[in-house]
Simulated scan of single mutants.
Amino acid sequence: MNYRDEWLLFEADDDIDEMEHRQTSEEFLFYRSVAHGDVDAVRRNCEMGRFVESNGVGVLSKDPVMNLKYHFVITTAMVTRMCRQNGMELEHAFRVSDFYIQKLDYISTAQGVKKLHDEMVIDYTEKMRRYYQKNIQSKYINDCKEYIYSHIKERITIESLAEEFDVSASYFSRLFKKETGISVSEYIRDQKMEIAKNLLQFSNYSMIEIANRLSFSSQSHFIQLFREKVGVTPKKYRDEHYMVQWDQ
């Protein structure tokens, strides 16, 4: 019997316990927190022990420690590629990945694998946080971008940002454009589009749900802006990229 036939028999076996896997959007949000340097969110996830929970997680090996090791390698690969997509230098990203995966050879307990996992994701997260801090010209603009990131699902205006940072809207607009090269509105729109692309690629949210989650005035407005920015409609983007496009 070949592997394909064995799988068909396995799939048809009535004795197999049904198990619902975690939503991919939940995993993606964790990877995104790492890639965006959100140390607090990643620490909370580690403290909750989500990595070692069995509910919603595929069984890759009947040996519990080996099963965790396989999941560790998958998580490391996903984190590495997300960090690459968000600016980490390629060779650096893969050297860190190789370092932590090789450490698995010396671990023989589930607790040991969890400890290594937590150290690995925190290490990547802190590296990405330093990357973002280093690549921003001023603390003022850094704080502004942090605010936008934290409120990206809301409707953000120049006026609301200026009020938040206690400056005039005209001064805020000039300063932001001077230091970043683009307007505040364009930056906010770009960030929303990046999240929209990720949701189209890694979640099952409908177009209207994505439009609502990102506080666009309507689904048609979202589709129009997405097409202007990305060059294709959201539907075409999802058709071409859903769950398959990872930078190598």
Rank of each mutant, 00 (worst) to 15 (best):
M1L: 11
Y3A: 09
R4A: 05
D5I: 03
L8F: 08
L9M: 13
L9D: 14
A12H: 09
D15S: 13
T24I: 10
Y31C: 11
V34E: 01
H36W: 08
D38F: 00
V39F: 03
V39A: 12
V42H: 06
R44P: 01
C46D: 11
C46I: 04
V52W: 00
V52M: 12
G56F: 08
V57D: 07
G58N: 11
V59H: 10
L60P: 01
L60R: 12
K69C: 01
Y70M: 13
H71L: 05
F72L: 06
I74L: 15
T75W: 05
T75F: 05
A77N: 14
A77I: 11
R81D: 00
F94K: 04
S97Q: 11
F99W: 02
Y100K: 02
Q102K: 14
K103S: 15
Q111D: 11
M120S: 02
M120F: 05
T125N: 02
E126V: 06
R129M: 06
Y131Q: 10
Q133F: 01
K134Y: 04
Q137A: 15
Y147T: 06
S150H: 09
H151Q: 10
R155D: 14
S160T: 15
L161P: 07
E164C: 06
E164H: 09
E164N: 08
D166Y: 09
S170F: 02
S173F: 03
F176C: 06
K177S: 09
K178F: 04
I182C: 09
I182R: 11
S183A: 14
V184Q: 06
V184G: 03
K197L: 08
K197S: 10
N198L: 07
L199C: 00
L200Q: 03
S203L: 08
S206Q: 13
I208A: 08
A211L: 08
L214Y: 03
S220K: 10
F222G: 02
I223T: 14
Q224L: 06
L225V: 13
L225M: 14
L225G: 00
F226G: 01
K229H: 14
V230D: 05
V230T: 12
P234R: 05
K235P: 01
H241Q: 09
D247R: 07
D247W: 02
Q248M: 06
